[in-house]
Amino acid sequence: MAVTGNEKKSIIPWLWFSMACVLLFLILVIAIRQPAVQALDRELIQGLNPIRISALILFFSNFTDFASSRLLLLIIALFMIYLFFRKRIFSLILLPLVFLIEREVNGVLKNWVMRDRPPFHHLVHETGYSFPSGHAMNASTVYGLLILLILPLIKSKWIRIAWVTLGLAMILLIGFSRPFLRVHYFTDIFAGYCAGGFFVGISAIVLIFVYNRKR
Rank of each mutant, 00 (worst) to 15 (best):
R42G: 02
A39K: 10
D188V: 02
R33Q: 15
L74S: 14
K110R: 14
L26I: 14
T127Y: 14
R70H: 04
S10V: 01
G175K: 01
W14Y: 14
P119F: 11
I159N: 06
V37R: 04
A136M: 06
L181T: 08
M1Y: 06
K8S: 03
F186G: 05
A31T: 07
S203C: 09
P118K: 12
D41M: 08
W158Q: 13
I208A: 08
R86H: 14
L123I: 12
L40V: 09
F186V: 01
E43M: 08
L15I: 02
V113Q: 13
A55P: 00
F199A: 02
L83W: 00
L44Q: 06
M1H: 06
I147K: 04
F99G: 05
M114P: 04
T4S: 15
A139K: 04
F17R: 05
S140W: 04
L74N: 12
A39V: 09
L100K: 04
F84Y: 15
M137D: 09
K110S: 13
A20I: 10
M170F: 09
V200R: 05
F99V: 09
I45W: 02
L58N: 11
I150C: 10
L44D: 08
L48G: 04
A195V: 11
N138D: 07
R42N: 06
L26V: 15
I11T: 00
Q38W: 10
L173P: 03
L58R: 08
V29N: 07
V108H: 07
Y143D: 06
Y129G: 13
V22K: 04
T141V: 10
T64K: 07
I161E: 13
F180R: 05
M19C: 13
L151Y: 14
I159M: 14
I150E: 06
I45A: 02
S68H: 08
D65L: 10
K157T: 07
W163S: 11
H125Q: 13
S61Q: 08
A67T: 05
V37P: 06
P35G: 12
S133C: 13
A191L: 04
I202W: 03
M19R: 06
